[in-house]
Design a protein around this nucleic acid. Structure first.
Lengths: 293, 293
DNA sequence: GTTCCGCATGAATCGATAG
DNA sequence: ACTATCGATTCATGCGGAA
């Protein structure tokens, strides 16, 4: 079958461009769309009040091209309008569910290095949402690929196992929770949580970096295997596509802005896919609170 | 004027009890209501689908007793129902706005020791929402009281900033959030962000503390002065009231569960209000990424 | 007095089984 | 079909007694 639509960056509105992409062909959609009425200089802006109507026709295409076992991760945060958090994001969640999406989870991205700021009524906004949508309750998830080093407590405390730790099965009232700590012996990695600690991109780039490379990397690792297809319909400077390529996934990147389109193509050309196997997750950044925090 | 309704714990449904409290008399409402279908053994449980209807009559009383300059902070998190995050919390936000509340901000509580467990399609839930509602755009907020030591943040990140960070302004991304970060150099205290890192308390013999004392302490500090009135309509074991008393605020605590009612009264009796001034925020816990993280 | 270490336990969720 | 109950899985922290 023809798969020449893969591993390319497209210029145009994703709603139109995606019509060239077959049904049920994408494993992961990871994207950070233009937030309402921000980045006006590059995207022309969408009014907060019109955001849901603007987004949903595109979501219909995402729904069509996504495999039933696939996942859609949407990085978004509502802006402050007239002293209030605007509601377009939560309205979007409700609308997505109406259209058949499952709102499986909401990850939180804690932007560790956002610098202090002060306004009369609020502090610096230091987190963003990563909304996970799915089409089915069963979807592909490769949890082992994102495990993190166990917290320091284990080194000091896991040395000697107590009798109760070995067999707390009797589950006192309310708790209903037993454990068998001997399962943990020799374990040096644990599963992360739904809180992702990651610094925003600091390095100087000639684009407004929506997110650091580690962010798409984490989700690509979690939801895809090699040769799976990753789509970013608002690919911007191409970060998602670059990471997907490095990780040996197929990719589709779309952006309606010509400068970004050219930039993404250039960045991709520069990517050399390593011949050796990808390393384990680096410890330079924290994934979950078990990291170097 | 009579203020004998203050500094007391009440037994009953807050919707009824609050009728004894005058209009415009409360400076801060801080509470953590029973989440839908949780704590069934003590509170009977509210079905997720009925949660908004259950909550709103109570919110109407909150609206009446809260001063126009006051703040309502609601600690809540939706649970997973049938593989999805339930929508009752975001529906509650929309309903609150319909009734005239302003959704000013959403703080994030990162629970560093979240409940363990492993599931095929999700990780541990490690954060809760702290929804801030107000009645006016101008409200009382004492930001200086929650400043935190600069700590590692400045040492590691502020020291070697990229040129873009130093001069980031509207010209780059049109955010309008231009801040010259060098303004913050040389300070020893900075404002926190809207991400709060705090472990839940465990192993408290007498009661299952819904939240650690530092959580109400932080918001009481931020939104009230001494002798201001703090209300917790779901006071549980009394944590909010205890903290308010220690901090020399007036308080009203309400709970419908008799055991909690008695427990809260006992805890309050044991509180000795210190004669000396409250200390600065301790460095034992992290508030935002500016802390000791 | 400190530090160390045993120990309990938490706003959880899924899948299977039972009524 | 739909709800109620039960067993299995799992990590980080505070407390308190011991060293």
């Amino acid at each position: 079958m023809a798969s020449d639509y893969l591993d390319r960056i497209y210029l145009g509105d994703c709603e139109q461009v995606l019509k060239e992409v077959p049904d049920n062909s994408v494993d992961l959609i990871f994207t950070s769309p233009p937030y309402a009425d921000q980045r006006r200089s590059t995207y022309g802006g969408v009014k907060p009040s019109e955001y849901v109507d603007w987004f949903m026709p595109k979501a219909a295409q995402f729904q069509r091209v996504l495999k039933p076992t696939g996942t859609f991760v949407l990085n978004i945060k509502e802006r402050v309008v007239n002293g209030e958090r605007h509601t377009y994001v939560i309205e979007l969640i409700l609308k997505m569910r109406q259209e058949g999406w499952l709102w499986t989870e909401e990850f939180m991205w804690h932007k560790k290095n956002s610098y202090p700021g002060k306004w009369p009524n609020r502090f610096r906004d230091s987190w963003e949402r990563l909304l996970q949508f799915n089409l089915q309750r069963k979807f592909n998830m490769y949890q082992e690929t994102v495990m993190v080093p166990v917290g320091d407590w284990a080194k000091n405390r896991l040395g000697n196992l107590s009798e109760t730790d070995k067999t707390r099965d009797e589950s006192k009232v309310g708790s209903g929770f037993g454990k068998n700590i001997s399962n943990w012996l020799g374990r040096d990695k644990v599963y992360p949580t739904n809180v992702i600690h990651m610094a925003t991109e600091c390095s100087n780039r000639n684009h407004s970096a929506a997110f650091p490379e580690q962010l798409p990397e984490w989700f690509i690792r979690l939801f895809t295997l090699e040769d799976d297809v990753v789509l970013d319909p608002f690919v911007g400077s191409g970060t998602t596509a670059v990471v997907a390529k490095i990780m040996k996934r197929r990719f589709i990147g779309i952006d309606s802005n010509e400068e970004y389109f050219e930039l993404a193509k250039d960045r991709l050309k520069a990517v050399q896919v390593p011949l050796f196997q990808l390393a384990e997750p680096s410890e330079d950044y924290d994934l979950g609170e078990s990291g170097t925090e």
